[in-house]
Amino acid sequence: MAEQDVQSKVIEIIAEQAVLEPSDVKMTSTLEDLGIDSLGLVESIFSIEEAFDISVPFNANDPSESDFDITSVATIIAGIQGLIEKQTS
């Protein structure tokens, strides 16, 4: 899957969770900016796993120590790109 496609799919998933238009989701947005709480985050990660058939290493107890950076939309997309590459390599 092309990087551009991954990016637009992730943004689509995040936008749906935030009840926003994809155009309102910026690469610099944080989950807090978008109004996504802990339950919303877990649900988004589930949708991402289903969409790309990957496993995201994320523990809700300690997001900062999970091997997956959720600081912003950009870091989430980079993390997913990495997981997809790891899976296909």
């Binding site: 877990v42 990660i45 994320f58 523990n59 809700a60 107890n61 300690d62 120590e65």
Partner: peptide, 18 residues
């Protein structure tokens, strides 16, 4: 729900993970 620990239950410990 991603709240389960894979290794141990460590209540109140700073390194608890579920």
């Amino acid at each position: 729900l991603r709240v389960l620990s894979r290794d141990a239950c460590r209540p109140f410990s700073a390194n608890r993970n579920g």
